[in-house]
Design a protein around this nucleic acid. Sequence first.
DNA 1: GTGGTCTAGACCACG
DNA 2: GTGGTCTAGACCACT
Lengths: 126, 126, 126, 126
Amino acid sequence: MLHIDYRDSRPIYEQIVDGFTRLAISAVLTPDTQLPSVRQLAIELSINPNTIQRAYTELEKRGVTYSIKGRGSFISADCDTLRQTRLAELQADITSLAHEARQLGATDTMLLHWMQVQHTKEGGQP
Amino acid sequence: MLHIDYRDSRPIYEQIVDGFTRLAISAVLTPDTQLPSVRQLAIELSINPNTIQRAYTELEKRGVTYSIKGRGSFISADCDTLRQTRLAELQADITSLAHEARQLGATDTMLLHWMQVQHTKEGGQP
Amino acid sequence: MLHIDYRDSRPIYEQIVDGFTRLAISAVLTPDTQLPSVRQLAIELSINPNTIQRAYTELEKRGVTYSIKGRGSFISADCDTLRQTRLAELQADITSLAHEARQLGATDTMLLHWMQVQHTKEGGQP
Amino acid sequence: MLHIDYRDSRPIYEQIVDGFTRLAISAVLTPDTQLPSVRQLAIELSINPNTIQRAYTELEKRGVTYSIKGRGSFISADCDTLRQTRLAELQADITSLAHEARQLGATDTMLLHWMQVQHTKEGGQP
DNA sequence: GTGGTCTAGACCACG
DNA sequence: GTGGTCTAGACCACT
């Protein structure tokens, strides 16, 4: 269900947070779907339950999930909101990188090619 | 000469590396220009000399500078190469981010707007 | 009869306690009205009977209900007392919060506005 | 410097977060003031360093502090912003409580008295 | 020395 | 059984 890369420099709990966030954004996990329990996922991934707990706490604080003591953790309802949030982040990043690239001599044509934009005249998306 | 932001979460040595790299890329520092000595820069920025040394070592490892024993550190000649290296990095990042954004529903029009591309062609989206 | 919100962070038994307390305070449930049996309410709400039992025990401890062995639980007679008790709690909370707000620079006008008090008197603030 | 109440039901790390937040809001701790180190505070309060670390992480995430690896944690600059944030919280709480109190029969006069508002005709704040 | 992450194991409240 | 908190001790990167 989740892929953890131990060689990745990013902390494990962050990879778990990202993983579930992606699953929620892409609607693979629909609202009110129950996540695996802290202990179960810990065993499954051979990771300390504390680390899983930290990831779940973070997910709840970000509004991706909600949890009920004694019952479990569940995907939150606002899936589309997450999409918008992520898109806003992407916009900020892309704008910044494009600005730097342009300062280094990149042309519009290069940028369009990098982003694989269909630049036919009245072109839509096939 | 260099701007260090102590509140930045990035380590100081990395900020120094980035700073000199940018100066070299933008040709503010031309090839064979001598960098300030470790001790001098340490005093100037009120930073531990160890941190400066680490940055200089990193800069040399990346090929941005070269050093001569007993003389000091100097900007390398391959300024344009640095540009290309950085552009390659930017291309990889932008392509990846654009791909994700498109999967989340971003349209070509949105991407073009984010990158502030001059729309020379009148192509819209149906 | 009762509304349970599974996404609420508050434990279910507390929501039940609050629910019956509100019904008693607002006189929807008059004194000596019998509460549903533990088993019946458990089935009705699809909740573990242990949880209901805990709520009922808590209600009795707080004096909202009384119970007779073999008969069931009933609303206590002191409905107005509950009102006064709750009002006393509210007074304590409001006084404390108002004090803190004032220390942070809130003016009387702001406080009145927050509480939506009808300004019968034309007193403003210089 | 900080007061921890072990009998308080609130978790220790939250008490620490609140404590430093209050000190920052009330300008007892001015921007860029260094907080005690994780280990030092842990010894001082006889609390596990992990718990302190959790509090410090939370403080940083809330924007109350910023931290530099290898140097320490420091109070953030936006002291007035914190005030506004807290006031918004207080407004929400007071409005809600006042609403409930009114439903239970509290009069404007009672509310004004609870909040110790000077309700003289043109009264300001002495 | 500093903050940040992780493991191991315990206890609690809740269902 | 569940999530949430805490302790104890370790390792890492950074200054």
